[in-house]
Nucleic acid binder design. Structure first.
Lengths: 219, 219
DNA sequence: ATTAAAATTTAGATTAACCTAAAAATAAAT
DNA sequence: ATTTATTTTTAGGTTAATCTAAATTTTAAT
């Protein structure tokens, strides 16, 4: 039986390696899990024993097929529970991450199938992230970081990079949610910020960092 | 922050002391939690440090007000999740205990209020057990063990003593569920068993042990 | 190509939660 | 009232998961 701690390590390695990177370094994992590099070395060596990650000294860790399956299942569970919290219990999107973080560890073969069905087999969670299928397939969507759009272009918000309460509350204050239209008015060269019109109404200036964290579909 | 293990100990002490007993012995707790008496001594000493139980050597443990609050909240959570599993996800009553056992440990002030509301503030769980209020009050119902009824009397099943899958499956096979009418046809003296008619149809003979585990309301 | 900086691993400890075996205290039985 | 049986506690250890500090390896920079 796999422990919560082990599950969290697998998920962290998944997150790090899901885009570009070939393997997850000790420090990167420690950063995500708020632990020390030494603890990470310890754990990935144990996960390697269990054949859940492949690991070479000083070269970082990557998920084995078995480890990848566990990580994908965790993400599926996390995202389905987030849909439950928002759709059924009427939580707001900035409150759900920490609760889902706990619920994802519940072990039951039956439960997630029934939950998925009950929720109407949603394909995306309340932050716009795709919910992998039972088989571990992620739906891919053409989406761009807002800061890749050119002046005059308009995008519809379909996702956000981070799920921190503070960031989401900032968006709430600006009345920005999934589906919101964002039109690029001006790209300011000197500090790389972007002036944006929100739903044909208010204007706001996003620092590059924020614009990068908003995912849109071109309109 | 209280650990899962600590929570389970508090719940075990609650179960033991909820009816008659003044305090929970080491062995009794060990029995419920499938652990050794030595481990129990260890833990109740630590819980005593934290003022969650009051404990005197060789005299067993009982819950402090703080410990009682935690235990009651756990039971509230457990039973509300059981209602969710049956009413919303359409689980059958014999499958839910182990899942709820995991879900009861999820920590969120908001979550349980919202869940309770979503479920329509149920007062009893799918096994007929009362769901304590937020304030920790249990609804009390006049109910009798089936083996206390006399020949000719009829009861309606409102609860069961145990939640083991095997026991509940045995009831399923007999088509016995909450609400089922049970009429005492004959009390057999020589082995203390009881002949019962189920919903004016089939007959069955219950050993005393089973009759004791079925709670009915007199009709 | 060396040296400095950063990342990673090892060594040695700690804490929570468990264990077995032995000792001590309480309860039951003659 | 002793003896026996049962329950509980103590003593000494183990494992998973963490830590800090020191050593080692890799990467970056001069």
């Amino acid at each position: 039986m796999i422990s919560f701690a082990e599950e969290n390590y697998l998920k962290a390695i998944f997150k790090i390696t899901e885009r570009d990177r070939k393997s997850a370094g000790t420090n990167a994992i420690a950063g995500i899990l708020n632990t020390s590099a030494a603890s990470v070395t310890d754990m990935i060596q144990r996960l390697s024993e269990k054949e859940l990650v492949s690991y070479e000294k000083y070269k970082g860790a990557s998920l084995s097929p078995a480890g990848n399956k566990i990580a994908t299942d965790l993400i599926r569970k996390h995202r389905l529970w987030e849909v439950f919290l928002v759709d059924k219990l009427h939580f707001s999107w900035e409150k759900i991450h920490d609760i889902a973080e706990q619920m994802e560890h519940i072990k039951s073969d039956d439960l997630i199938d029934k939950l998925d069905n009950y929720l109407g087999n949603p394909r995306f969670d309340p932050h716009g992230d795709p919910i992998p299928t039972k088989e571990g397939k992620f739906m891919i969507r053409n989406q761009y970081s807002l800061d890749l759009l050119l002046e005059g272009e308009t995008g519809v918000l379909v996702g956000v990079r981070h799920h921190e309460t503070d960031f989401l509350n900032y968006l709430n204050e600006l009345k920005i949610a999934l589906g919101t239209e964002l039109r690029i008015l001006k790209k300011l060269e000197f500090d790389k910020s972007t002036r944006v019109r929100i739903n044909n109404a208010e204007e706001v200036i996003f620092p590059k960092k924020i614009a990068r964290d908003l995912y849109v579909k071109k309109k």
